[in-house]
């Protein structure tokens, strides 16, 4: 069983994000970078599946500048087996990412692809679904644990995605395997069974990702990262969606502090007229 996990290098959400004066992008000087938090959850899930299922391999893939090797290393330090970096310095839109990933998947032929539901820089929430359609695969978006993150299941580091079937081929046919995925949708939790190979995008409540231990960080330095370019994969990454301008958001100004509940309710009634 081979599991492919995607990791995007994004601005750290702890860093202050400011728009450039020329409105071309955000200021990147002094900003820290890290792996997209959703992708760490995807790596964690892949590792749990690997360690509870048949012999498997976890491959982490990133599309980005040379510096994105650091985020691949962070996935390897968590425990992934090897990495692939598709190097491209300029902005690649989520559609370009999906088409690059398709080319990688055509070569790697994983059984399961785990991705974040959303990259917290562009906040798109589209790459996994695009990729599923380009591959003609099934998808289960917004994967969650059925139980809470405080549950005994999570404390025992159990995967939230359940694989069914034994992966063996009935009389030489292709192996029949599927994944049971609980999805966070509007109004509740939906459970889907998706035939493998499939795309699963993960939500926040799937697991709590591990921290890399020091020995594992050391070990990760020796794990292989293959490098390639979109050109070598035959993918044109000219964006279908171009960012033409970036502006600061409208600012809300702080209002007043009220001394007590009576004043608050009075003001909401006669000033704001909302109650």
């Amino acid at each position: 069983m081979k599991i492919l996990v995607t990791i995007k290098r994004v601005e750290d959400y702890e860093s202050k994000i400011k728009v450039k004066p020329d409105n071309s992008w955000i200021v990147t000087d002094g900003v820290n970078y890290r792996a997209n938090p959703f992708d760490e959850i995807a790596v964690e899930e892949a590792l749990r599946l690997r360690d509870t299922n048949m012999p498997s391999e976890v491959v982490v893939v990133s599309v980005g500048p040379a510096a994105a090797a650091a985020e691949i290393r962070s996935g390897l330090a968590m425990g992934a087996d090897r990495g692939i970096l598709v190097k491209h310095d300029a902005f690649v839109d989520s559609d370009g990412v999906a088409r690059v990933l398709k080319a990688v998947i055509d070569q790697e032929k994983p059984d399961l692809v785990l991705m974040g539901k959303q990259a917290v820089d562009v906040d798109d929430n589209v790459a996994g679904q695009l990729l599923a359609e380009y591959l003609g695969w099934g998808q289960a978006t917004f994967a969650s644990k059925k139980e809470s993150l405080e549950s005994p299941e999570e404390k025992a580091k159990k995967p939230g995605i359940h694989l069914t079937g034994d992966g063996r081929s009935p009389k030489g046919a292709a192996p029949v395997m599927s994944a049971l995925v609980a999805r966070e949708v509007d109004g509740g939790l939906e459970v889907l069974e998706v035939q493998l190979p499939a795309i699963v995008t993960v939500d926040l409540r799937l697991n709590v990702p591990r921290y890399a231990s020091l020995p594992n960080i050391m070990k990760a330095k020796k794990k292989p990262i293959a490098e390639m370019t979109p050109q070598q994969l035959g993918v044109d990454v000219a964006p279908k969606v171009k960012v033409v301008k970036v502006e600061p958001p409208p600012q809300r100004t702080a209002g007043v502090k009220v001394p007590d509940v009576q004043t608050l309710v009075q003001k909401l009634h006669s000033e704001a007229k909302v109650i």
């Binding site: 728009v19 917290v120 820089d121 969606v241 171009k242």
Partner: peptide, 20 residues
């Protein structure tokens, strides 16, 4: 063919152009 959307947790508002 231009749309406004939030990025970086609403820290920036981008105008994007769809070229297709």
């Amino acid at each position: 063919n231009q749309f406004k959307r939030a990025m970086w947790a609403g820290n920036a508002i981008a105008t994007v152009e769809v070229t297709t």
